[in-house]
Design a protein around this nucleic acid. Structure first.
Lengths: 220, 220
DNA sequence: ATGACCATGACAAGTTCATGTCATTGCGAG
DNA sequence: CTCGCAATGACATGAACTTGTCATGGTCAT
């Protein structure tokens, strides 16, 4: 990560001419960065990258005509993953943020940001950081939590006894009743009896059904 | 979210006296916020919250003696989830960041931040945003990607034919062979024959084993 | 067009499972 | 102390599953 980034090459991809020109000028007049290209659509920016030109940072509008920003983001990331891509948007929509982050965005600014904020963001992005509007960051953190929790949802309680859970576990390993009996040191008959209770409690009536439910709901 | 937050109550929890006093003074002299409490350890801050005092924002050091910052964070979140908690740390460690975000941090600053940055972070946190150091944000985004991808790992290819996958799917729904035959409009014998191939390809020899493997590995 | 592969169908023998019914032991709550 | 419940064990019957072996028709590539 460059501590003192200088001559950062910045591209703009933004359909609004006024915003594009204003931002371009701001970048040009800022120290340590310049803006040799400013595209009005993703297609031209993508072809420019295809010809081998690679900027350090791309400020990418999400709401573009033609290829939209998120799609463009994925393509950029595929062609030249070393480019730092900061999204610019007026939206503050959780779903869009989620998709953007999944697509590999390196930053997320709102268009309401001040010029200084944008310039700082460019510097941070070029230095390997991910500039994020605090509003957006809050959403990302919330999503992160949900995602982390979704990985281990508290298993529903069917009132299975400990013994029944053991049986279920073994069955989910692919063992047949007799093997389960051996592993647990009990009679096959008893295994069957426990299975009855399990089937009743899980509202299924086949071994496959029980295993499917057990695994899908995280009981084992 | 308050657009113009004023009189933001900020608590400090930080063991280093010099840093604590300096930060406290900076907050006090800033507009729109004050710092009525500055604790040297998490225990006293937690007991203060227990008595019903609730700040808007807590600046929480991660490396505390006694109860460490992350543990304290979880307790604060449990007692008074409306408190915005911004972590302060010298470390920039991916694992720590992951744990912090999972614990519900509302922001993450490095101690190398300037006074202005900290004060801004406080304002942003109070306004519902999540101030994050760009270095940290970059880690979080990377983690986010890994997490999102981990949720849908490409299922291993056992060379199952489309028909075999259908059979497997139905079986994982808990259907018995005859029902599967009816659903797919084929003979039970054919179902059995497909199951043979499935068992062979999946290296199992029971229906439960096949279902378990199918579900666990995301084949269905 | 010949072989490889998939999907289909079948029969038989042996194994395993589901279900109904019953009984014993031990433990904790009322 | 008695009742309920979990855990254990059993028998019998019918249903479902596994495995071995065989066969037909279609598609696709060499």
């Amino acid at each position: 990560m460059n501590d003192l980034p200088e001559n950062i090459t910045v591209w703009l991809v933004e359909d609004n001419e006024i915003y594009r020109c204003g931002l371009s000028r701001a970048i040009e007049s800022a120290d340590g960065m310049f803006c040799p290209e400013a595209f009005a659509d993703a297609e031209s920016a993508l072809s420019a990258v295809d010809t081998g030109m690679i900027p350090d940072v791309i400020l990418l509008d999400v709401g573009l005509p033609g290829i939209d920003g998120l799609t463009a983001l994925k393509r950029f990331a595929k062609i030249a993953p070393e480019i730092r891509i900061v999204l610019l948007t007026v939206f503050n929509d959780t779903d869009k943020i989620f998709k953007a982050v999944c697509a590999g965005a390196n930053g997320y600014l709102l268009k309401t940001s001040s010029t200084d904020q944008v310039l700082n963001a460019v510097r941070q992005a070029a230095a390997g950081g991910a500039p994020m509007d605090p509003q957006v960051a809050d959403r990302v953190l919330t999503l992160f939590n949900q995602l982390a929790e979704a990985k281990s949802p508290p298993p529903p309680d069917y009132g299975l006894s400990p013994r029944e859970k053991q049986i279920l576990e073994q069955m989910a390993q692919g063992l047949v009743n007799k093997e389960i009996a051996d592993v647990l040191g009990i009679s096959p008959h008893t295994v069957i009896n426990h299975l009855r209770s399990i089937y009743t409690k899980l509202h299924v009536n086949t071994n496959t059904g029980a295993v499917a439910k057990a695994i899908r709901e995280g009981l084992v």
